[in-house]
Nucleic acid binder design. Structure first.
Lengths: 204, 204
DNA sequence: TCAGATACTGTACACAAGTACAGTATTCTT
DNA sequence: AAGAATACTGTACTTGTGTACAGTATCTGA
């Protein structure tokens, strides 16, 4: 990518910021108004230069077609629950408490319709470096392997546990990763809601 | 928020998905085309109903003014570095390796221009539940307090350490949180680049 | 030194897109 | 049973917006 001039970097920064804030990229005249240009063409020249240098792409003829950079981080929204209900209807964001929005690069994988987020309560998984208040990303329906951290419904509340199966035909157990909770629960009697595949921690 | 009909939920889902994918919300005619409507007013009726029910807001008169929901998660982009250079120029995303995009609700605070992300290398902070490969969010310029995890430049590489200062006038130290690295380093001789305030873990 | 890129002003045009008004059939609620 | 909301069709108007063409001044690299 060719180097941008100071002015071009300013314009690019405004475009990205405006799209993040407004939900749509600015029009050429909005760019012109922001920088005091008296002609929409001043903004257009900058956009064309940015496009030529690979900093963004445009969709010709479309209103607000600028701003979609080729390396633009693509974000996904993952519904977040306090406690996942037993059924886990596919209705998705219906009764979710909110959404986790994150870009695919950082997340590391592409979530599906059965991916959800869960706020962790309790410190039963400190041994796996998952703390109280963390938000874990889970995949529903994936078959858990030995050592995976899973979300299970215990006493009408989602709790994280380690999935333990010593051999291919051995019985599966759930184990808390905290000496204070030495319980070992048979996995077959519980509803495993998802396998933990990611984590977000805030306010450390 | 009033309950949405199945059709309205479909339209809302399309609007959100299209904006995530394209970077701009769809026009009324694009919605109509997606659902096979022969009139842009069919889409407009749905958008008005969704607006009336509080599912989204519109900016009248603006092209692609729909899709900005009131509870729409506002995202921020935080430049991500492999190793933070000593100077840490304010130029921001210039030499960043990428961006972490995340919504403010999940992040838990509003980042400033001196907020950056760092990929963790090594397991020197497992005692604080920060693992190799984690991405930590740091704030540059904030004064570290006792117990904070900080990013410090040691041997031309950013490393995480715990900031230790026993009393108000005591000397500050940096401590690794791993028995294998028992080194205690004087903080004054090192460049503290930022205080860790968040974390993202992937591919657990 | 000279061509090209940068950084604009100014006017005008064509199309994309929001909007208005009129109308129909079905479903839901009271 | 009545009224409102839902879920559209169809046409037309107006504005927002991308685009084209013409022109000026400054700066930068070959």
């Amino acid at each position: 990518m060719a180097k941008l001039t100071a002015r071009q970097a300013e314009v690019l920064e405004f475009i990205e910021t405006a799209r993040d804030a407004e939900g749509a990229p600015p029009s050429l005249r909005e760019i012109a108004a922001r920088f005091g240009f008296r002609s929409p063409n001043a903004a257009r020249d900058h956009v064309r230069a940015l496009e030529r240098k690979g900093a963004l792409t445009t969709r010709p003829g479309r209103a607000r077609g600028i701003g979609a950079g080729p390396g633009r981080p693509r974000t996904v929204r993952i519904p977040r629950f306090g406690t996942v209900p037993a059924g886990f209807a596919e209705g998705r964001e219906q009764d979710a408490e909110g959404c986790v929005v994150i870009d695919l690069d950082t997340l590391g994988f592409t979530p599906g319709p059965r991916t959800f987020a869960l706020q962790v309560r309790g410190d039963s998984m400190v041994g796996r470096h998952i703390l109280d208040g963390d938000i874990v990303i889970c995949e529903h329906g994936r078959t858990p392997r030995h050592g995976d951290v899973v979300a299970a419904l215990i006493d009408h509340e989602s709790t994280l546990k380690t999935f333990v199966r010593e051999g291919p035909r051995a019985r599966a157990w759930l184990r808390a990763e905290n000496p204070a909770y030495p319980r070992l629960l048979p996995a077959a009697e519980l509803v495993i809601q998802g396998v933990v595949v990611g984590l977000v921690r805030r306010r450390i």
